[in-house]
């Protein structure tokens, strides 16, 4: 396959162009979400939320078919309900956040599958769970654009309190910062990104475009800003490679993108200078002071 063939994949097929643009925009928005999920040790929370939005998306699908806005509204409502219930349970009872989320998302996922199987077919289930590039039409692109814009603005506003809430929540509380409010705002942005991602990647895998590039970037730099930028680049590379491979080899797009991100992750674990395996086992030299 030559470079010309590669370009032809996207220049000849409009749906591939839309998929690529959608995934690249998604990469920019999802990367900072993933970085903070990782640094706040909420990686599995992202995963749980991806499962939790399923019944909402399914309900939207049942009422309006493959209508983006109905499925989005449903997913958003379900995601918010789970996130808020989970943090309420965490703050009001002795249960920790992981336990309260795990219990809620399992119920939520089960409800979602029941809803879909009540009316839809196995194809519908697969489509909702794992996405399809063919689903990215102009409406979906607009939606991804809106979500990415909201995400970028939200991070510009939330960055400092979010960092502080991660490093020293007690201090934020003492100086009068609204830690709970910031947490909810962050969860909201995350749910929006999960929903934006489910057209291309499916509800289960859209969290992959957040977590894998963020986790990979951790192996290349210790600076928060550089880590976020690098995560965006990794996500974009994974999107481009994954989409191309899925087209050429006729594979599902979502899993292809995530496997590409997984390869980048494996390379980072091996070769990353900050904590990578090779750097770890290379004989260490030390300075005089």
């Amino acid at each position: 396959m030559t470079a010309a063939d590669l370009i032809a994949v996207f220049s000849d097929f409009a749906f591939m162009r839309r998929a690529l643009v959608g995934c690249l925009v998604l990469s920019i928005a999802a990367a900072p979400v993933g970085v903070f999920l990782m640094l706040r040790r909420l990686s599995l929370t992202g995963d749980a939320m991806a499962h939790a939005i399923l019944p909402g998306v399914a309900a939207g699908y049942l009422f309006a078919g493959l209508n983006l806005w109905a499925m989005t509204a449903g997913g958003l409502a379900a995601g918010l309900a789970i996130a808020l219930t989970a943090s309420a349970v965490t703050r009001l009872t002795p249960l920790k956040e992981d336990a309260s989320l795990a219990t809620l998302y399992l119920v939520s996922l089960a409800l979602g599958v029941i809803l879909i199987s009540a009316r839809g077919s196995a194809v519908d289930v697969m489509h909702l769970l794992f996405g399809s590039v063919l689903a990215i039409d102009d409406t979906a692109l607009t939606f991804i654009g809106i979500v990415a814009s909201i995400t970028v603005v939200a991070f510009a506003v939330l960055w400092r309190p979010l960092v502080l809430e991660c490093v020293d929540p007690g201090f934020l509380k003492a100086v009068g910062g609204r830690g709970a409010l910031i947490h909810v705002a962050f969860m909201l942005v995350m749910v929006l990104n999960l929903i934006a991602g489910f057209q291309a990647l499916g509800t289960l895998l859209s969290v992959g475009l957040m977590m894998l590039p963020a986790a990979s970037a951790r192996f290349w730099t210790r600076s928060l800003g550089a880590m976020t930028a690098l995560a965006m680049v990794f996500a974009a590379i994974a999107s481009l490679t994954g989409l191309t491979v899925s087209f050429v080899a006729n594979l599902p797009s979502g899993p292809s993108i995530i496997v590409a991100a997984g390869l980048l992750y494996a390379l980072s674990i091996a070769f990353g200078p900050t904590g990578g395996l090779i750097a770890r086992f290379r004989p260490a030299r030390h300075r005089t002071g």
Binding site: L39, V163, L164, C166, V167, D168, P169, G170, F171, V175, G177, R222, S223, L224, M227
Partner: peptide
């Protein structure tokens, strides 16, 4: 202090949080 010391933040930025008010 419940400080997450693994968070990638240099000393300067951490101390600068004192200017929150």
């Amino acid at each position: 202090a419940e400080i997450d010391r693994t968070f990638p933040l240099p000393v300067f930025d951490f101390v600068a949080m004192g200017l929150w008010q």
